[in-house]
């Protein structure tokens, strides 16, 4: 809930936004190219350095999710869901798990070695047990 409050804080909204890819602090997840991140979250199995990467969808912040859809997968929300379903139906790959509760998301990231998700950089704190794998987007970058 604290994360959500931070997300919608007007003071925070005026700052430069950084959307980052995060993983558990103890996990080994190498950086991914934008195309790999897109593929990963579209349900394509990505294995890097012997580690299978598991995408987790962060639905705790509608704006974050829209930015993720616009900057990473380049689709609307409905079309993204459709694509995921089509891939799952055709190939039988597991669907990325969705998290609407931030604490459950953090817990999942900490407990699963290959799990990654996206967050505002401001929302990641040192003692949360997470680490930033790479930056996905920043508002002033473009």
């Amino acid at each position: 809930m604290g994360l959500l409050l931070m997300t919608f804080n007007p003071a925070v909204a005026d700052q430069v936004r950084h959307m980052v890819l995060v993983a558990g602090a103890n996990a080994y997840v190498p950086p991914l190219t934008p195309a790999e991140v897109r593929k990963l979250f579209l349900g394509v199995v990505i294995t890097k350095d012997g580690q299978r990467i598991e995408p987790l969808l962060n639905l705790t912040d509608p704006l974050l999710h829209e930015v993720f859809l616009q900057k990473v997968v380049f689709m609307s929300s409905e079309n993204y869901q459709r694509q995921l379903l089509a891939r799952i139906n055709h190939l039988g790959d597991p669907r990325p798990q969705e998290y609407s509760d931030p604490w459950q998301l953090i817990s999942a990231l900490r407990s699963r070695p290959g799990a990654v998700s996206y967050m505002w950089a401001q929302d990641t704190r040192p003692r949360m047990g997470l680490k930033i794998v790479q930056e996905l987007w920043q508002s002033r970058q473009e």
């Binding site: 616009q70 380049f74 689709m75 609307s76 929300s77 409905e78």
Partner: peptide, 17 residues
């Protein structure tokens, strides 16, 4: 309305990419 908007946004995002 959601359908129309979703269609538009999807087109914008995929076209721009």
């Amino acid at each position: 309305k959601q359908g129309y908007e979703s269609l538009f946004i999807n087109q914008v995002r995929s076209d721009s990419h």
